[in-house]
């Protein structure tokens, strides 16, 4: 207790020199892993959403199983699963390549991608379904082909609805990326813990890490609010 009460704050220690470099490299890793996973998750999420909307039953079921399974299980366990189990799940050539490169980072990307894609697929699907059906019927009756109707009528409107939840999903992704430190990816949080164990100045390190996450999410929620103010008014029902 005495040690705790006599705690000397030393912000200079964390904000300059080697420890500051660690934190900066942690921020870069967090942004890298988030950006890469977001890109892949958008792709995979779109594919899964399309699968769920086709009229072909087996594809629909695979899409449904994918979204339900990965949305209803903890990300942490999924990370362990990909990290420890990928050699039995993925093809051998892929694994060899992964082991030769940064395997922790890759396992983290796979887990974050799959988890986020399941949520993104649901957002995309519900966004498209929220456009009233008569819009499609009207444009079909007006002489557009099915693809044209989607291209010019449904999707432009759906995108405006989908974008805010997609932004908040990316924010969730950035926050979730803190979990990859359990398998040794050196993100912000990993670096904060490393500073803690090197210097016993955990408070400063954790404060800096928290402030970084907070500022990221404040900026993002500001963007959502601005977006909503400018664009959501124009949607017609």
């Amino acid at each position: 207790m005495d040690r705790a009460l006599n705690y000397q704050f030393d912000w200079q220690l964390v904000l300059s020199g080697e420890y500051a470099d660690w934190l900066v490299s942690g921020v870069i890793t967090t942004l890298e892993i988030s950006a890469l996973s977001l890109l892949l998750a958008m792709l995979l999420g779109t594919i899964v959403a399309v699968m769920r909307m086709t009229k072909f039953k087996p594809l629909e079921w695979v899409g449904l199983a994918f979204t339900e399974f990965f949305r209803n299980t903890p990300l942490l366990v999924q990370i362990y699963f990909w990290y420890y189990g990928s050699n039995q799940v993925l093809p051998e050539a892929v694994n060899k390549w992964l082991y030769a490169h940064d395997f922790e980072f890759a396992a983290g990307v796979i887990a974050l991608t799959v988890y986020t894609a399941a949520f993104i697929a649901e957002e995309i699907r519900s966004g498209i379904y929220s456009i009233p059906k008569n819009q499609l019927e009207a444009s079909r009756a007006g002489g557009l082909s099915f693809i044209q109707a989607y291209r010019y009528v449904i999707l432009p409107q759906a995108f405006r609805i989908i974008i805010p939840p997609l932004i908040s999903q990316s924010l969730n992704l950035i926050k979730n990326s803190s979990l990859v430190m359990v398998i040794g990816v050196m993100d912000i949080f990993y670096m904060a813990r490393q500073i803690e164990s090197y210097s016993f100045h955990g408070f400063e390190a954790f404060t800096v890490a928290t402030l970084i996450y907070l500022s990221i999410s404040l900026v993002v929620s500001l963007c959502i609010n601005l977006y909503n103010k400018h664009f959501l008014r124009q949607i017609s029902y």
Partner: peptide
């Protein structure tokens, strides 16, 4: 609400893990 929603849960757990002994003294 905004602070908690902007912080990853893992970070929050570690905050309490380190803070709790300081606050209550044991």
């Amino acid at each position: 609400i905004e602070v908690v929603r902007g912080t990853p849960l893992l970070l929050l757990i570690f905050w309490f893990y380190f803070l709790a002994p300081v606050i209550v003294g044991y």
